[in-house]
């Protein structure tokens, strides 16, 4: 039983990271309709840049700088992927994000080589709760993910900029007609999503070292988390990330670590086929 709880606790920590990546996907999808495959690359960039910067600056500052850089890169990607008004189709945008993900991965390989990177956790000590080890890093990730989800929900509901993002997802035509620049809002949603992804990478890398090619598995898991809520729900992505993290870790603990990525894919396929059937039925 203790072993089971331990696996769940560890699973929660990666689950929160998937949730952050998934929430970013939800935000972009809601605002622009684009499924952003570069979301995994954001996380890897956040992680690798932080792991490099910690050699020179305090960890907190390293995380902040890395997240800002990723947000900037994300905004630029959004600008490119969104394309020209009325000219770029969603499919084209989606393929552009795939291409940008590959490009980013190549840049990571050039800059950071193929050595897995990591940096020390926030604390060497860990808490022992009745035989279950809880690392402060897990708590940090959980707190950051929950705070981000709450903050984003608040912004979308209560601020004019957030409302404008929601407006784009409700009716892009009407958003344009009232004078909103859907393109600027798309860039904003990419930048915010990139920041969330970068944060996930920066906080998970002390626990799970990342390399230039970790982005595919992160993107798949983030997408699976987002798909859990139909790509449109922040709460759904949060729940999806946690379910996925736990399921994955149980597979690692009880079956075989090499099925780790497969579980994400299987869950994703199950959800998608269930949802499509469900939606046809109603």
């Amino acid at each position: 039983m203790t072993n089971f709880i331990q696996l769940v606790v560890v699973g929660l920590s990666s689950g929160f990271a998937y949730a952050l990546v998934g929430i970013g996907m939800v935000l972009i999808h809601r605002t622009t309709g684009i499924v952003n495959f570069a979301q995994g690359a954001f996380a890897v960039m956040g992680g690798l840049v932080t792991a490099t910067l910690v050699d020179d600056v305090p960890t907190f500052l390293a995380v902040v700088l890395a997240v800002l850089l990723v947000a900037f890169v994300g905004g630029v990607m959004g600008f490119v992927a969104f394309g020209r008004r009325g000219r770029t189709t969603l499919l084209a945008s989606l393929i552009i994000t795939l291409g940008l993900a590959l490009l980013t991965s190549a840049v990571h390989l050039l800059v950071f080589t193929d050595v897995p990177r990591t940096y020390p956790r926030i604390s060497d000590t860990s808490w022992d709760l009745g035989g279950v080890t809880v690392d402060p890093q897990y708590v940090l990730i959980g707190a950051v993910a929950l705070t981000s989800a709450l903050l984003l929900t608040f912004v979308l509901r209560r601020t004019i900029v957030g409302n404008a993002l929601v407006a784009c997802s409700d009716s892009r035509r009407a958003a344009e007609l009232v004078g909103l620049s859907v393109r600027s809002l798309a860039v904003l949603s990419f930048a915010v999503s990139a920041a969330l992804g970068g944060l996930a990478g920066a906080l998970i890398i002390p626990l799970i070292p990342l390399t230039y090619d970790s982005d595919v598995s992160i993107a798949v898991n983030g997408f699976a988390a987002a798909a859990f809520g139909g790509l449109d729900s922040i709460r759904g992505a949060l729940a999806g990330g946690l379910v996925l993290g736990i399921a994955e870790n149980l597979v690692i603990g009880y079956i075989d670590p090499q099925y780790q990525l497969a579980i994400g894919l299987v869950i994703m396929l199950m959800i998608i086929s269930w949802r499509s059937r469900h939606e046809v039925a109603t």
């Binding site: 004019i160 900029v161 409302n163 404008a164 929601v166 407006a167 997802s169 409700d170 009716s171 009407a174 958003a175 007609l177 009232v178 004078g179 909103l180 620049s181 393109r183 600027s184 809002l185 860039v187 904003l188």
Partner: peptide, 24 residues
């Protein structure tokens, strides 16, 4: 209409859109 937003937010976005010049 912006379906998921309250009526008042719909109206306020009309005012936001008028001053929105592309730069956020």
């Amino acid at each position: 209409v912006f379906q998921s937003l309250p009526v008042e937010s719909n109206l306020l976005l009309g005012a936001y859109g008028r001053v929105f010049t592309g730069e956020l």
